[in-house]
Design a protein around this nucleic acid. Structure first.
Lengths: 224, 224
DNA sequence: ACCTGAACACCGTTCAAGT
DNA sequence: ACCTGAACACCGTTCAAGT
């Protein structure tokens, strides 16, 4: 019998090829997201990262969309709970701002969040927090239920819009040009507003949008 | 010298290969969208449709995103102007509902509209209409300018969410399950609301959302 | 049961070369 | 100038076959 010297060569080549698990896959996905963006979070790339073939991942993940949803829930864990200080309105705005700030760093993830409804534990915790704050503000349950969706939709869509795919900067330029050149005769309101239409930094827009939404929810008609 | 008999065979095989123009490309794109959805509106597929190679399209269209934006503006032409009857609020809701209804038929287009700011003539006309209605309702210009974006964002995001990629139906099921099973202890507000959280047909949600947004814009703080 | 090599059916975009 | 063949560098997903 030999003593146990080094582990065999093949097991040392890479830093301990981890067993394939759902958690391992999601962790690798988060790492790739942080390093290179969601565009690179592909089945093939992850397989490469985990030293296997793409087919193997399908044992743990139904498809790419589900993978992206899992990544989102993971990052949702970093958003944290509501702050202790301030009015319910302020705290509501702060939680949603924290959520959006996280998504601003990964706008492509926001885009996928708009379509792939997450259902992970962190998402659930976020909804619970938001409902609690609306309840504290005396918003009737029916309005609160739909209001939460409206608030999250705005936050998510705002982050998604800032998906700075180089190209989209040109879209903005084009829109600015076209607004600037709008004829007073055919587009009087646009001409009158001019650059006010496109003014405001993203976080100002977000903040205004959230406050406007909250005001709306307070004054909202009850759902039919 | 020969007389000119039939056009040569190669020019009759297909029904008059149209000259390559931007309009022709966009028209083909709309046709493919209608027949098979945005997923098939690819450079390669369009090239095939137009009897050329994909590289040729890049003379007229910068990239796939720009192509999709052009398709959107094209479809925006079918939305039509504001109705003549009703209060400004009702007409505003009707215009936005017509916009959303169009996008509901092409949810993937809605998704792309969220990121690729359109700047075509039909989009501009829509903004002008919306600004006109808000002005009619006495909404101050600064609120109206940002409000229009909020309204369009909600309409667009609502359509995008219903991107019924088969898979996303499973997402909804998962979310419903998780909400139903939410513990009263850890998630009291979710447990209390239960299925109310996910109730409502899409058009009810849209309508409530729009009315809530309009109410919010009327009560909104002025932008900072 | 879990895993995978190989294949199928695609993509966007660029570029050198042609007309 | 306009157009394009061919290539580069990728994708997601399935399935038969292996352990």
């Amino acid at each position: 019998m030999t003593d146990r010297p080094d582990t065999p060569r093949s097991r040392r080549e890479r830093p301990a090829k981890p067993a394939l698990t759902r958690e391992g896959i999601v962790a690798a996905a988060v790492a790739v997201l942080r390093a290179e963006g969601l565009r690179k979070v592909t089945m093939r790339r992850l397989a490469q990262e985990l030293d296997t073939g793409p087919a193997s991942l399908y044992v743990y993940v139904r498809n790419t969309a589900e993978l992206h949803a899992a990544v989102l829930d993971e990052l949702l864990g970093t958003v944290g709970p509501a702050p202790a200080e301030g009015s319910w309105r302020e705290r509501l705005e702060q939680v949603l701002t924290a959520y959006t700030t996280m998504l601003f760093e990964h706008p492509s993830l926001a885009r996928s969040a708009l379509t792939a409804r997450p259902s992970g534990p962190n998402y659930l915790a976020l909804i619970e927090t938001l409902l609690g704050l609306l309840d504290e503000g005396g918003v009737p349950p029916a309005q609160a239920a739909w209001g939460v969706d409206l608030l999250l939709q705005h936050a998510t869509a705002t982050a998604a819009e800032h998906s700075a795919d180089e190209a989209s900067e040109e879209d903005w330029d084009a829109l600015r040009r076209v607004v600037r050149d709008a004829s007073e005769r055919t587009h009087p309101h646009i001409a009158a507003l001019g650059s006010a239409l496109l003014s405001g930094a993203p976080h100002e827009r977000l903040s205004w949008g959230l406050r406007t939404l909250i005001a709306g929810i307070e004054h909202a008609p009850a759902p039919d």
